[in-house]
Nucleic acid binder design. Structure first.
Lengths: 205, 205
DNA sequence: GTCTATACTCGGATAGAC
DNA sequence: GTCTATCCGAGTATAGAC
């Protein structure tokens, strides 16, 4: 899957992302990355010195992208529910594009929690989740139901990301072939159903 | 983490499960499994001949356990909503006990889809999901709202399993330390919130 | 910058003693 | 059944030519 109009470094990063996301740090093979990138194995070391360093780069990029998405919550003047709707749409579009990102992060945390904590501190600098803060405010003003905002957040993340993660299982369980699942399971349908969840969880009547 | 009152074979299976679930087939190391089991590397080969064969055993066990859980749906005389409630409780208890099982299966499908399909055919023999069938029936009788049952099933699985899978991320994002998360995130709270989802999705009024 | 050839380490597997 | 010692292929990394 060589990309013709890109530098070797870009090709390597793209290939490394795919291979590391599939196999993890220890499961991935440098040869596999080189083949995927369509270049020679020695070149990997020329650009990134070692497997660990290359992995580090990929992992860091993934963390950035993920936490950026998680924590965007615009301070617009819209009602908070509409803001959550917007968040849901963006999240689902995001996961449709990067279905494996959260799994990748989760797996690597399991293997190397220290690395994760170190890197996340740099990225997040102790910021708390904006959506939760906004919901707390709205709740205080009586705009929405009284809820456990952290649990709501967990539920929301679950609904938005798990369908993409577990796609291979669902595909099979629901006895649909590739085409059927991808057709049935349009992101549009998912968005509607998650929004229903938001509505019934937050709306007062 | 050697278990004193068990045979070597049992120790190996337990250790192999932990190590394979953490690192996957290619990332796992036989030495690591042997150390975890508190036995010698040669003994692994004595009992299971090869890494692949040992992995196969573990993967098969996981599939069995997982699909058994997914597909239990009692034919009791209870209203279908109560049956779904029951299903939710059992599922959450199950995932609390085996938090990594679905992730393990998903990752390995990604790496070796053929193996998965072969094994699942043996396990499932083409059976479709009982809960979905029950819901379709109830819907036809007008007992519940008109819904997309497959999407409902996906949502339900998401709500029940993702919180356990993503625990390491949530722990961090919600800025709680281990204790806090485990306290806050009681399975009781989760069960209630998922049941609310079921209620508002299915109940006619 | 990119390649081929090669050094060296790691990890799966086996032989053989007990 | 369980261990130590060892073999050998696979995988990371480097040297050096172009």
């Amino acid at each position: 899957m060589e990309q013709l109009n890109s530098t070797s470094e870009e090709k390597i990063l793209k290939a490394a992302k795919d291979v590391f996301m599939k196999y993890g740090l220890y499961g991935a093979r440098m040869q596999d990355i080189a083949d995927t990138a369509g270049i020679n194995k020695a070149l990997l070391h020329y650009y990134f010195r070692s497997k660990e360093k290359l992995f580090d780069k990929i992992f860091e990029n993934a963390l950035h992208k993920y936490f950026e998405r998680i924590n965007v919550f615009s301070d617009s003047s819209l009602p908070v529910i509409d803001q959550v709707f917007k968040y849901v749409e963006n999240s689902i579009d995001f996961y449709a594009e990067y279905p494996k990102i959260s799994m990748f992060i989760i797996k690597e945390i399991e293997i190397n929690p220290e690395l994760f904590h170190k890197k996340v501190q740099v990225i997040k600098k102790g910021k708390s989740i904006k959506m939760i803060e906004a919901l707390e405010k709205a709740m205080a003003k009586g705009e929405i139901k009284k809820i456990d905002t952290a649990m709501f957040f967990i539920n929301l993340q679950s609904l938005c990301s798990y369908p993409f993660i577990a796609k291979p299982i669902f595909k099979h369980s629901l006895k649909a072939n590739d085409k059927d699942y991808d057709k049935d399971f349009s992101t549009g349908k998912l968005k509607r159903s998650v929004k229903n969840f938001v509505e019934s969880s937050l709306s007062k009547k």
